[in-house]
């Protein structure tokens, strides 16, 4: 089995768990904190068909929206963090100004090593994108607040932009940009 596939499998487990946990914990936390009447059922066939029933339309919309937001934030915050860290780390190697700024903000320790790979960022961004598609389609169908849909859209666009930026950094390592280097 190829190393890439092994690594992809290993890296996909955590965001997959977090995606389900973010939604489920979000729903349960709201039900408990607002003391909402609920029921767990299994009225559709097939695997992973557990359903949560709430007694009124307003609570359903509220719980669905906030749990969607919690799922998006749980996936989005680490993704954005990884992208920013990788970008700053790579920038410190090319730009002395960035090092000066980092020293000024006393975050040198934070960027002295980089264990985040492009593959990791790619997998997390993919999970964020899948979640955003689900949330946006919910928002279009009126099952989630519009602002939650917009937030997830912005977050996924930002992470796609970050992913492209990271890809450029990675390709620059393999094929350095000639205009930036002077060999003569």
């Amino acid at each position: 089995m190829s190393i890439l596939l092994k690594k992809a499998l290993k890296l996909s487990i955590l965001p997959a768990i977090l995606m389900i946990a973010g939604k489920f914990v979000g729903i349960m936390a709201l039900i408990i904190s607002y003391n909402l009447q609920f029921e767990v059922g299994n009225e559709i066939n097939g695997i992973f068909s557990t359903q949560i029933f709430l007694s009124d339309e307003v609570s359903t919309l509220f719980v669905n929206s906030i749990s969607d937001l919690s799922m998006i934030l749980i996936l989005g915050i680490p993704t954005i963090y990884m992208i920013i860290r990788t970008t700053i780390f790579q920038d410190t190697m090319n730009n002395p100004r960035t090092i000066a700024k980092i020293v000024k903000f006393n975050i040198l320790k934070w960027v002295t090593s980089n264990n985040t790979t492009f593959l990791k960022i790619f997998i997390w961004t993919t999970f964020l994108l899948i979640s955003s598609i689900i949330v946006i389609s919910n928002a279009i169908n009126g099952q989630t607040y519009i602002w939650v849909g917009i937030t997830s859209g912005i977050l996924s666009l930002l992470s796609i932009w970050g992913l492209i930026k990271t890809f450029e950094i990675e390709t620059d390592k393999v094929y350095p940009n000639n205009s930036k280097h002077s060999y003569y």
Partner: peptide, 17 residues
């Protein structure tokens, strides 16, 4: 690993009953 969480999240969406 990508499909299962997606289906689970879609089915977890609360329904009014």
């Amino acid at each position: 690993l990508f499909i299962i969480p997606s289906i689970t999240v879609i089915n977890l969406e609360p329904i009014t009953k």
